[in-house]
Design a protein around this nucleic acid. Structure first.
Length: 524
DNA sequence: CGTCTTTGACCGGCGC
DNA sequence: GCGCCGGTCAAAGACG
């Protein structure tokens, strides 16, 4: 008895030692990364435009236009959570960047328009105009995000209000509502634990599935517009499909930021695409409007037309199950090979190596602009940064998913990705100083997650952030691939997130799918 | 007694 | 216009 206790203590000490070493390594890597980015930023500021882009082989002019036009960053906060100091607001005059446009979903990309500020559109809303009047902004947010009952909506619409803007916003709501993030996971419990408080408000038998679909709304805040649907998969009753809609307009406990971050990022990614392809969308910038629509690239993908909502599905089940899903539903497939998750990964055990492992060709997807997703390929530093255990020197994938589109619609091969990604990442860092602090916050969150003592993540300036991360992925052919930011630091979610499915009924909103049907797009 | 769940009714969108 | 379907409401019941 005593002996085993001693042995256990020894193990704990060893583990502590390892963790300390890892923390130290993380801190060092972060500092080197930080320094490196600062150097790049300085170099680019001093070097001028001509030195900006080592790549852009196909169309340097277009690339240049792109880079000048839009600078992106990751919003790690909650859109309505203005006091949190998230990256939601920027001084539009700073560094010459323009108006901040925020996606309907808070964790999505933000665009900084320097030349041609967009009009207000379905998916985006110019926030800078109202930031000086907190009350107005709050009302705007509520109007845009809260889901008034249909009756209320009707009343509001038919009312005598001569506020055209409000009317516009109401009309724009359907677009905001449509982005959904669905999560498939093997869960034994009736609902998936995501850290939020939910209240069930309805249940329905949906067509094609004998299992009832339950409707929940977030009760953390009375005005929170977030809702979720929970339903068992018809093919596999062990799989629980949880679909999220909306953005939390209140601070979240750390345990809830994981799912919120992940879903919001995915949804905003989807929305950013949707807004770009909508001919009536706000992105009236001529240069973006004339771009081809098939810039949002997912491998082996086609567009599903069976759903009324564009939906990103994060499939946390097994790979085999995913293949079936992909085949049957004709969805986009985006499989993470991050720890090749098995059902056992769903166990509430936090494992740094399983979740934050992206030393193998780890990657960043940086939402580039509303009409373009730039697939960044950023490996070494992040891999070290977040503490992959024994590094597996897997060579970068040879082709297929490392391509990305140039602004003119042509795709760049994998050989360019390193340059492209670093340039993209640099741009993000340069354009958004808060990224660095957010990165630190993420690391802090990651390291400190086990304590459970903190509900919020603060950066150096004391601002709150939701944590983020970068997922490593692979397609269903086994090729390592890239995915976006924002991670689940909670124990329940840490060991999963193996893959992503993307589906949409709106072909134009996503862009031309990359599938066998249009294999001419493929870069061999 | 307050909170939450259940469940039938209702509403709006959409296709035919 | 009609019916189907998804989504929501709200009264009633269950529960602690």
């Amino acid at each position: 008895m005593l002996r085993s206790a001693k042995a256990e203590m020894g193990n704990v000490k060893e583990e502590n030692e390892r963790l300390k070493q890892r923390i130290s390594k993380i801190a060092n890597d972060y500092h080197s990364l930080h320094t490196h980015f600062l150097q790049i930023v300085d170099h680019r500021r001093g070097g001028g435009v001509a030195n900006k882009k080592p790549i852009s082989k196909p169309d340097p002019a277009a690339e240049e236009e792109e880079s000048d036009e839009l600078v992106f960053s990751l919003s790690l906060g909650r859109s309505a959570d203005k006091k949190e100091g998230i990256l939601g607001k920027r001084d539009s005059s700073k560094d010459g960047v323009g108006v901040v446009v925020e996606e309907g979903l808070s964790l999505g990309s933000m665009e900084y328009y320097s030349a041609n500020p967009p009009e207000i559109n379905d998916d985006t809303k110019i926030r800078s105009s109202s930031t000086e009047d907190g009350k107005d902004e709050e009302e705007e947010v509520v109007a845009a995000e809260a889901w008034p009952p249909s009756k209320v909506l009707k009343t509001m619409r038919t009312g005598s209000s001569d506020d055209k803007q409000e009317e516009e916003e109401l009309q724009l709501q359907p677009q905001l509502k449509k982005a959904r993030v669905s999560i498939r996971a093997r869960v034994d419990t009736p609902t998936m634990s995501d850290g939020c408080q939910w209240r069930k408000y309805g249940q329905k038998i949906a067509k094609g599935n004998p299992c009832p679909r339950a409707y929940y709304r977030c009760t953390v805040s009375p005005t929170c517009p977030v809702r979720k649907q929970v339903q068992r998969c018809v093919d596999d009753m062990t799989i629980l499909i949880t679909t999220y809609e909306g953005t939390h307009n209140h601070p979240l406990p750390l345990s809830a930021t994981a799912m919120a971050s992940t879903t919001s990022a995915a949804a905003s990614m989807l929305q950013s695409c949707s807004s770009s392809s909508n001919p009536n969308s706000s992105i009236s910038n001529p240069s973006t409007a004339t771009r081809p629509l098939h810039q949002f690239y997912f491998p082996n993908s086609s567009i599903s037309t069976c759903n009324s909502h564009p939906t990103i599905t994060l499939d946390l089940t097994t790979t085999s199950a995913l293949s079936t899903t992909n085949t049957n539903n004709n969805n986009h497939l985006f499989a993470f090979n991050n720890n090749r998750s098995s059902p056992s990964n769903l166990a509430p055990r936090y494992s740094s190596s399983s979740t934050l492992d992206f030393s193998n060709s780890s990657s960043v997807v940086l939402p580039c602009n509303t009409s373009n997703m730039m697939l960044g390929y950023y490996s070494s530093t992040f891999g070290n940064l977040l503490g992959k255990q024994p590094p597996q020197p897997t060579p970068p994938p040879q082709h297929s998913h490392q391509e990305h589109y140039q602004p003119n619609g042509t795709r760049v091969g994998a050989d360019d990705d390193d340059h492209m990604t670093i340039a993209a990442a640099t741009k993000v860092i340069a354009s958004n100083p808060s990224f660095r602090s957010a990165l630190a916050a993420a690391i802090t969150s990651f390291v400190g997650n086990g304590t459970g003592a903190r509900d919020e993540v603060h950066n150096q300036e004391g601002e709150q952030h939701q944590p983020f991360t970068v997922f490593q992925g692979s397609n269903n052919a086994g090729n390592d691939n890239v995915m976006m930011s924002l991670f689940p630091p909670t124990a329940a979610n840490a060991a999963v997130v193996p893959r992503v499915l993307l589906s949409s009924n709106n072909r134009a909103s996503i862009g031309r799918p990359f599938s066998a049907a249009n294999s001419e797009d493929r870069v061999e």
